[in-house]
Write a protein that binds this DNA or RNA. Structure first.
Lengths: 337, 337
DNA sequence: TACGTTTCCGAAAACCTTTAAGTCCAGGAG
DNA sequence: CTCCTGGACTTAAAGGTTTTCGGAAACGTA
């Protein structure tokens, strides 16, 4: 361990100037002779001087730090958002203070206070689902943006994936392949994500003047449920030619069971998943066509808008971010597979 | 947004005392009358006063903040470690400053400097694999602990899963079930994890006086490779009765192909995976017996030892943390399934 | 009254940096 | 020669908190 951290005072003494001059030299300001600046820089290098961000922040009122508050144990959805945010901040000077509330409102409040006391410049709140969540920003002295899970308060700034549009896009893809008897298997109906994706399906089918094949099957987001739903669906609606699944896990389960029951994917039944969770979507056979919510982009965008808000240019409201359909073998046109 | 943040000065004025007295009252120190303390506390509450952590840190030299430096984009292994660390810190007062070096040494240095300038009290470095990595702690004025991926420097403090012991444990489990012809499919041989796990297998077999069934098959960590290896293995060594896989992905692929080839799991072939990645291990049929590396515990332990190191009690060396065998259906004794 | 003790409170320094304002000096213009 | 200008540098204040030390009041004792 180095003995003691060098301060700008040490640098100034070593260079034989005042601390004011040292500061100016180090920050590239005017009013300092080239020779002097060089002496200061040399001294700083020799002492491996690092300016104390605390002192700087105390003075300027800006810490160049943002808080990232997640509720879902930094789970499946938090990570990419976090990465995108870190990406937007990272290259520059911003740092991210990470807090996990583990879904507990009390703990969340506690973390908000801790972050406030650390004088973060802003806050990103990552939801655990796309269901609107209570606002945390009432009377907060710093800007807040919500990612993935929007705030209940429309005056807040929120970024969410456009589930409705993405589902419609997925279904239109199936329609373009000539599929006409499309079924829907999805997660628990109390999730807004499930309802939104069903809504997108409904819209796309209505546009095409078609009826959905059978009723929507709501269960869990799991592979197990996908297998179970496949059993039921193949029994009840034997002549379906496509399935839109609410998650890749469901789709993976569906594909597995369909194959065991002698249905070929995609020839007999085309399957579309959701999430583009690569460990599943690229490893099932056939690989899954699926919706990628571009969460990393979403996180990056949220971070950029947080910057804007810090600079005083807020853009309130819920912003729906476009998703992307990743086309793989589970929806190849016949003969192409 | 609230107008302006209250300082201890505002609190003191409102309570009609000096800032020194206010500080003492707020921090529960002696030398302040009960009535006065109450007045101060009331004033603080009214102004919703939050002490400025910057000022406090500047004075005390302690920020109650640690840096968490990850190389693997907070991937599969970083998350649980991070959670464990956050857990150990969280309840109390510590905060975590997250940095992702994305595997780039330059960026890593940059982040270390940034963290240093923010005066973090310590650093946790999370590796992307169990291969030893260059030390980052040379001449750093703060303690550093390494989690998952150890430092090359034995004077540093590192925590890694005990892959050798865990593999031996897994194989002993197979032996206890009466399996005698055990094969091994694992990831790329240049990974220390792959070599360590093979070593554990070797030791367990040697103890039992047995030979491995066929040679170790090294490929990728993927499901695809698991399927491919299964094809080869069932051809080359048809009479194997157990397989030890280097990852759950490999195991999932193996199980799938084995079933398609008419081998029953676990009756004909018992399968053990590695990682306990639940989306795979609990969703395959049958569910996988697998090694759980207890990464969350590892992260928590690393964090606790970082605390100890901050308090001056370091424990240098590479600490191997015990793993745990999670027994599921893929190794049920015959007739129990 | 003089003095010591206890209890409570306030003044001021310290932490480190940035910046506004001020000082000093050389050189050019009048 | 005087005055002004501008460049190069220094002084000092500010930012919010904690802590040390000293001061004042109240009270008891001689």
């Amino acid at each position: 361990m180095a003995s003691k951290r060098a301060t700008i005072n040490d640098v100034a003494s070593l260079a034989g100037v005042s601390i004011a001059t040292a500061s100016k030299a180090l920050n590239g300001r005017q009013d300092v002779r080239a020779a002097t600046r060089e002496r200061v820089l040399a001294a700083a290098a020799e002492l491996s001087f690092q300016p104390n961000a605390l002192a700087r922040g105390l003075l300027s009122g800006q810490t160049r730090t943002v808080g990232l508050l997640t509720s879902d144990s930094v789970g499946r959805f938090g990570i990419p958002v976090l990465l995108g945010a870190e990406d937007a901040f990272g290259a520059g000077e911003m740092a991210v203070l990470l807090c996990d509330a583990r879904g507990d409102a009390i703990r969340e409040q506690h973390h908000v206070r801790a972050l406030l006391s650390r004088r973060v410049d802003g806050l990103i709140v990552v939801g655990e689902s796309t269901d609107p969540r209570p606002s945390v920003s009432r009377n907060l002295p710093i800007p807040v943006v919500y990612a993935y899970g929007p705030s209940e308060d429309p005056a807040d700034v929120s970024f969410v994936p456009d589930d409705v549009g993405a589902a419609a896009m997925a279904v239109n893809h199936l329609l373009a392949l000539g599929r006409r008897r499309i079924a829907h298997v999805t997660g628990p109906a109390h999730y807004k994500a499930a309802r939104d994706r069903e809504e997108g399906l409904r819209l796309a089918l209505a546009d095409a003047g078609l009826e959905q094949a059978g009723r929507t099957l709501s269960g869990a987001w799991s592979q197990r449920w996908g297998r179970h739903a496949a059993e039921m669906l193949l029994m009840a609606e034997p002549e379906i030619d496509a399935v839109f699944c609410g998650s890749d896990q469901i789709a993976a389960g569906f594909v597995e069971t369909a194959r065991e029951r002698g249905r070929r994917v995609p020839d007999d039944i085309a399957v579309v998943g959701y999430d583009n969770w690569e460990v599943l979507s690229t490893e099932t056979r056939p690989a899954l066509t699926t919706v990628d919510m571009n969460l990393e982009l979403l996180g990056r965008t949220a971070a950029q808008h947080l910057f804007a808000a810090i600079d005083g240019k807020a853009t309130p409201g819920v912003h729906r971010m476009p998703c992307q359909l990743v086309i793989r073998d589970s929806t190849s046109p016949p003969g192409v597979s």
